[in-house]
């Protein structure tokens, strides 16, 4: 069976503008920020793929390219065999009912002047399949799905708590029966007790509705809990991909090792062996050639200056490192 979502060689460059561009021209530097380079991955129906990496590594750009919030520079995004990256505006509007997105800040993502009813019914109205009576039924159905009381439908966002608002965002995303939902840091803005409830809700919905998720987060423990497979990004490229349990047991890429070893473990007796990288993440305007990590990696060798493709090292495991 072909995967539900197939992303191949996706790249996105943001051209510099104005004064920054002029400066770059004078200095002979690059004229664009290469936010995502040659990213390829699959997501099967009913599966969660976790995408982790530090701020600025291109996680959210990948998400926005898949949902066509922005247009990728090159590459294909196949959803059910249809290339979303090449659709025109009208065709994309139809395809969008199949790909939905939930954002990080539940408050900013909602229109403060619309009621829950208006916001959740809006995608259904745009889809144009249901009558107004059917839309109301569907509204109540998704409210039940996300655990919101039906009496909340006439509330405005400011009349609800942060957890309820994120539930409204999720309700809106699943209203049109999408097969695939992109979750961009959906739990990061929430407090501990709300976070665990949203995590459980997302897991419950995936199982019950057969949804597939691309779960983007820098909260590595949450990704571990929700994702079956995890891809690690560094400076616009995927450096490692593995089944969740294996990634944690045997990280192959030095960057993955560094990232995982930095997560504080809630156990004072845990033996923590830090794998330190030197310096800070370089600017995406000056990505090193070859392996992008080589300037910071304690294991770097001369060979690391050569280009390093993502290659298979075991079934289901890929890594982009000369030394792994």
């Amino acid at each position: 069976m072909p995967p539900l979502l197939e992303v191949s060689e996706l790249s996105k460059a943001f051209p510099l503008r104005g004064a920054t561009r002029m400066l770059a021209t004078f200095r002979g530097g690059p004229q664009a920020v290469q936010a995502v380079s040659d990213v390829s991955f699959n997501v099967a129906a009913g599966e969660t793929l976790g995408l982790i990496g530090e701020s600025g590594c291109g996680k959210s750009t990948v998400a926005r390219c898949i949902t066509r919030v922005i247009d990728p520079t090159s590459g294909t995004v196949l959803l059910n065999g249809q290339n979303i990256a090449a659709l025109d505006k009208t065709a994309m509007r139809r395809a969008r009912h199949d790909v939905q997105m939930v954002f990080q800040d539940p408050t900013a993502a909602l229109n403060p002047r619309l009621t829950v009813r208006r916001m959740v019914e809006e995608p259904l109205r745009l889809e144009g399949k249901l009558t107004s009576t059917q839309r109301r039924e569907r509204l109540f159905e998704v409210m039940d799905d996300v655990g919101l009381g039906r009496d909340l439908v006439d509330r405005y966002p400011h009349e609800m708590s942060g957890g309820q608002r994120q539930r409204v965002n999720i309700a809106r995303a699943i209203a049109t029966h999408p097969r695939f939902v992109v979750l961009d840091e959906p739990t990061s803005a929430l407090d501990v007790s709300l976070r665990s409830r949203i995590i459980l809700l997302l897991e419950h919905l995936r199982k019950r509705l057969g949804l597939a998720y691309l779960f983007i987060s820098h909260d590595i423990a949450t990704v571990k809990y929700l994702a079956q497979r995890i891809a690690v990004m560094y400076l616009g490229r995927i450096v490692e991909e593995a089944p969740g349990a294996e990634l944690f047991a045997r990280p192959a890429h030095p960057y993955t090792r560094a990232l995982l070893s930095a997560v504080p473990v809630p156990d004072p007796d845990a033996a923590t062996e830090r794998f330190p990288l030197s310096g800070e993440i370089p600017s995406p305007l000056a990505i090193p050639t070859g392996c992008a990590l080589r300037g910071r990696c304690p294991l770097a060798q001369p060979i690391c200056a050569e280009p390093v493709p993502l290659r298979d090292i075991a079934p289901g495991r890929k890594v982009a490192c000369h030394l792994a």
Partner: peptide, 9 residues
């Protein structure tokens, strides 16, 4: 609190 957090370990 301890039971409500996902853990990496």
């Amino acid at each position: 609190l301890l039971r409500s957090i996902p853990r990496v370990d």
